[in-house]
Structure formats: C-alpha cells, structure tokens
Design a binder for these strands. Structure first.
Length: 258
DNA sequence: ATGGTAGCTGGGCTA
C-alpha cells in the first residue's frame, strides 16, 4: 500500500499534473490540500477515470481537501469533515475509512505571523485536532494522518534553522503542538528511514527558493504503531516541483507492506 | 522592515 499527500495549490490549475503523477506513481491513497474548489466544481469525472474513488470538502477561493482512494477497493465510509468542538467554515479536514485503514487528511492553518490572530487560530486548531486524533487512535489500529501541517518539526527540516527560529512554521509552540501529536502514538514516516540532508517539501515561490533549495519540510505522513512496523519506505517526490507552473509543495509518499 | 511570486478575483487576501 502506498499513501501520499500533496498540497496542490488549486486543483483546477494542477489537475493535469495530478493525473500525470497518479499514473506514474500509482498510489493507493492520496490526501490533497488547497483544492480551492467549491464541491460543485470538483473534477470527479477526471479522477474517477484515473481509477480513483474521491471524497472532498471544499469552499470558494481558499483551503479545501480531498482524499483519493483506488477504486478497486470498497467504498469509503465514516466521512468526517469537521473537528469536534470547532465550528469552522474553513474546509481543512477530511477523515475517511478505506477498508481497515482510517485516513485523516489535514490542511493545518498557516498561521501567517507569530502573535497574529491567524497564529492563535492555528494553535487552537492544533489543540482540537490533537483531541480528535487521540480519539481516532483509540478506535483504529491502522491509522494514518497526512497533510500539510505547516510545521517544520526539527532543525533538519529547515534550510536555515537559525534564521527561522521563532518564525511561523517553526516557532516553539507550533513544534510543541506537533510533538504532542506524535506522543499520542504516531510516528513521522519520513524519519523511519535514512534521508538525504536538506530534504524539504515546500519552497516559497519567491526569491528563487526552490532553485536554491531554501525550503521547509512541512508536509507529513504520520502513522500508528501498527503501520510503523509495516512501513517500508518514505520520501519526498521533488520532481513535480520542477515542472512548469508547479505547486509550491512537493508530494510526500509512504509505502507499506500488506 | 520590506519585498519577492502565485492563485483567486476582479482590489485585496492568503500563502
């Protein structure tokens, strides 16, 4: 089983790239973020034609999440699009059950700037999502939460940790919230394996950041203990970030034995 | 401290 997450930054613009990537990579489950589409405009037909069932929760202009699951399997069930206790119009959550796998797709708020209202919203969101994940881990042995967490967990996940200290995406409270999530019984699949130094998943469009590899690793696939033991590989696929008119994020992938 | 780019939208917000 191969599981992936990709912040596509507009599925309308990136649909051809997604379809090309699905064909090449052949993942079983894919969480998407920043689809930026109303549900009425979601490209269901194109994704079904590529061989995937798809669930989605979108809104106008911003945010929006979707989960693709390869169509051979049973339909998805127990679809959840809101964090319990958070009355939020922003579409950032999509949890689905695929066979015996519970998969949660997150688009964690960016936070804008430390100390801002958006930063407070991010920390509050992380509290609510942690409570939800704790509940889900108790109910599902085979559990994965993937997505754009907008948090670089460690120094090695940042091109310039000294310069980023205290900045949004790398501030202490955000990283502590990420550690609290892991403490519930999750493992960062990427760090189960030896990786190239300076591997990132997001590069700002500005200032030639990708060309200079000035990036952060903020997209993650976190797995329960049962799946940690079955995880046989994890990586960032930089290639789509080299394509013409790319998303600012690269897809991240984790592979498991059956 | 600011600006650089991209997407959505139709001026400004978000990232």
């Amino acid at each position: 089983m191969k599981v992936a997450s990709w912040n596509v930054n507009s599925l309308k613009v990136r649909l051809p790239q997604l379809l090309q990537w699905l064909q090449a990579e052949d993942p079983d489950v894919v969480g998407l973020q920043e689809t930026k589409l109303l549900d009425d405009n979601f490209p269901v037909d194109e994704i079904q034609a590529a061989g995937y069932h798809v669930d989605f929760a979108g809104q106008k202009t911003y945010n929006g999440v979707a989960v693709l699951s390869r169509g051979n399997g049973p339909e998805t069930t127990d679809i959840v699009t809101d964090l319990p206790g958070l009355d939020d119009p922003q579409r950032r959550v999509l949890a689905v059950t695929i066979g015996d796998l519970r998969f949660v797709d997150f688009y964690v708020p960016n936070g804008s700037e430390v100390g801002s209202d958006k930063y407070d919203y991010k920390l509050g969101w992380l509290e609510k999502c942690t409570a939800y994940i704790e509940d889900q881990l108790q109910q599902h042995e085979r559990f994965i939460v993937g997505g754009d967490f907008n948090i670089a967990p460690e120094d090695e996940d940042v091109h310039d940790p000294a310069g980023w200290t205290g900045q949004v995406l790398f501030s202490g409270p955000e990283r502590q919230a990420f550690q609290r999530l892991l403490k519930l019984g999750l493992t960062d699949s990427f760090r189960l394996f030896e990786q190239e130094p300076a591997t990132f998943s997001w590069w700002d469009y500005r200032m030639g950041a990708f060309r200079r590899n000035r990036g952060l690793r903020i997209d993650h696939i976190l797995v329960s203990d049962a799946l940690k033991d079955r995880c046989v590989g994890a990586r960032v696929d930089r290639e789509p970030r080299t394509w013409e008119r790319p998303s600012d994020h690269a897809p991240v992938v984790a592979q498991f034995t059956d």
